[in-house]
């Protein structure tokens, strides 16, 4: 059982237990859909929805789920919200659905969602699980948007949000390689390395203050 406050359950997903940079899971969509910030936003929104509902379903049924067959049960409980997202997206956002392609149905096998079901929702109350799902999902969405914004900026020279384009004209020759798979791998690798350096710095500062 977790002893955080409800707000704490939400905010831990943003930094402390961030899916991409701290737990390093669910990497396939992280790299595949982040060719622009808007793609990252919609993919993130889909994951928030699925994660919140799958966490709630798993938590509601946690006392009647036999231990031996819990993984197949989780998979079915996760598949239900994924199908809902798929149908809704196909109906109301057909263009985005086409861009995200098979990665929308593949949310079903995303490690983040199974990991949260197994590690959190199966052991905690319904309300806590809902906040945990919202928090981890929001953290994941912010990761996707950050990576998407960096790749879009370097790859096309601008970042487009709706009808706004920033900066209005590319400031440099766009590097198209950032939009291809190699660019995705390298961007995420360098971001993680930078984060590691920041964490080490703050840790050594803390050590100095204590000494």
């Amino acid at each position: 059982m977790s002893n955080r406050s409800l707000i704490g359950e939400f905010t831990k997903g943003l930094i402390e237990e961030n899916a991409t940079f701290r737990m390093v899971i669910g990497m396939c969509p992280t790299l595949a859909v982040t060719t622009s910030m808007v793609n990252g936003f919609w993919m993130g929104l889909a994951v928030i929805f699925v994660l919140t509902f799958s966490n709630v379903f798993v938590s509601v049924l946690r006392k009647v789920t036999p231990d031996e067959i819990r993984i197949p049960v989780f998979v079915i409980l996760i598949a239900a919200p994924v199908v809902i997202v798929e149908l809704v997206m196909n109906a109301y956002l057909p263009d985005m659905y086409r861009v995200l392609g098979i990665f929308v149905p593949l949310i079903v096998v995303n490690c983040i969602i199974i990991a949260r079901a197994e590690a959190f929702a199966y052991r905690n109350s319904v309300i806590r699980s809902a906040f945990d799902g919202l928090g981890i999902g929001t953290g994941f969405m912010l990761d996707l948007m950050l990576i998407g914004a960096i790749r879009e900026f370097l790859g096309t020279g601008t970042v487009t949000v709706g009808s706004m384009v920033f900066p209005p004209k590319p400031l440099f020759e766009p590097m198209a390689v950032m939009l291809t798979p190699p660019g995705g791998f390298v961007t995420l690798g360098i971001l993680m390395a930078v984060l590691n350096i920041l964490v080490q710095r703050s840790a050594s500062k803390k050590a100095k203050v204590e000494a």
Binding site: V24, V177, T180, P181, P182, G183, G184, F185, V186, L188, G189, I190, M192, A193, V194, N196, I197, Q200
Partner: peptide, 22 residues
């Protein structure tokens, strides 16, 4: 380098291999 150990280096080398496969 300590900051690159593990995942960061794994991702960067995958990126370079992916460039070769391109």
């Amino acid at each position: 380098p300590a900051a690159l150990k593990g995942f960061p280096l794994a991702l960067i080398s995958t990126g370079l291999m992916s460039l070769a496969f391109l």
